[in-house]
Computed example of a mutant assay.
Amino acid sequence: MTAGSFEPGGTGRALAGLRARVRRARAKGAGKAATERARRLLDAYLATAERHGRAAREVAAGMARGEVALAIGTATRDALMSDPPVVVRRAACAEGCAFCCILRGGDGGTITETEATRLHDALAPLAGQPDGRDWHPDACPALDPVTRACRVYDARPMICRSFLSTDAAACETNATGGAAAGAGLIGSHLDYLAAHALARDALRGTARVPTYSLARIAAGAVAGETADASLDAARHATGTLDDTCRNAARAGQITNS
């Protein structure tokens, strides 16, 4: 094996080849600064896996499913929240507000395979019950229509964990098609997206690295679909992750403003 090669079935030493791939990978749409930050975070994750002797096949599978991007996004979010900036301390978010859960455009957000499976599994036992769309036709099916609280809060994807607002009225305005300031994504969300985009490029030719529509996964689960059927229907086209990175980078991150 050369320094730049990668054998998915190799031992922990094969992670050196995977790290070399990550160093050459691109996160299309994320921008240079976000890409390099995500590259450093992803390489640090792989270096730790290498020190612990983890098999390259196991680590690559976690990258493909989005487990690694989720771990990176969670770690950077937790670090940010341990000493929250002013905009986070002034967040107006409260249970039952839920205007951020009105999924205009129908997609609801880009999520990984790990998140999609987790969300489906959490919602499946609630199939057939009234859901958020009984409150608002475009609301997330994960909502309780009376309390407007998320019924699967612990299984909510990173997009849900990353959104905040300093003005609840702005969220209501935006949910009806307006463009009020004060709501957005915290900076760690771009780390998560860029890390997954780098993983996809690094694994090109060895593994599929899909993304999914949050809204379609949730709708399928409450309709009684199997997880496989929901994932098949919700799988994004290849360019969706690039577009999501690009949109997030253009919008900026609320905690960086």
Rank of each mutant, 00 (worst) to 15 (best):
P130T: 07
R13Q: 05
V22K: 00
I111C: 03
P125Y: 08
V87Y: 06
T176M: 06
P145W: 06
Q129L: 13
S257F: 03
D144R: 07
Y192W: 13
I254G: 00
A249I: 01
A94N: 12
C160V: 08
G29E: 00
D191E: 09
T226C: 01
A56V: 04
T176L: 08
A38L: 01
L123V: 09
Y45V: 06
C245L: 05
V68S: 02
A221V: 09
D78K: 12
I159K: 10
R250V: 05
S230Y: 01
I186Y: 02
G9S: 06
V68D: 01
A169V: 15
S257I: 11
R23V: 00
E115D: 07
S5M: 04
S5W: 03
S230F: 02
R19M: 05
I72R: 00
R235H: 01
T114C: 04
V222S: 03
A44D: 12
A122P: 09
P130I: 04
G106K: 12
A234V: 07
H189P: 06
D138A: 11
M63Q: 07
R250L: 05
A20K: 01
S213M: 07
M158Q: 11
P137K: 13
A122T: 14
T166K: 08
A149L: 09
D191H: 10
A47Y: 08
L241Q: 08
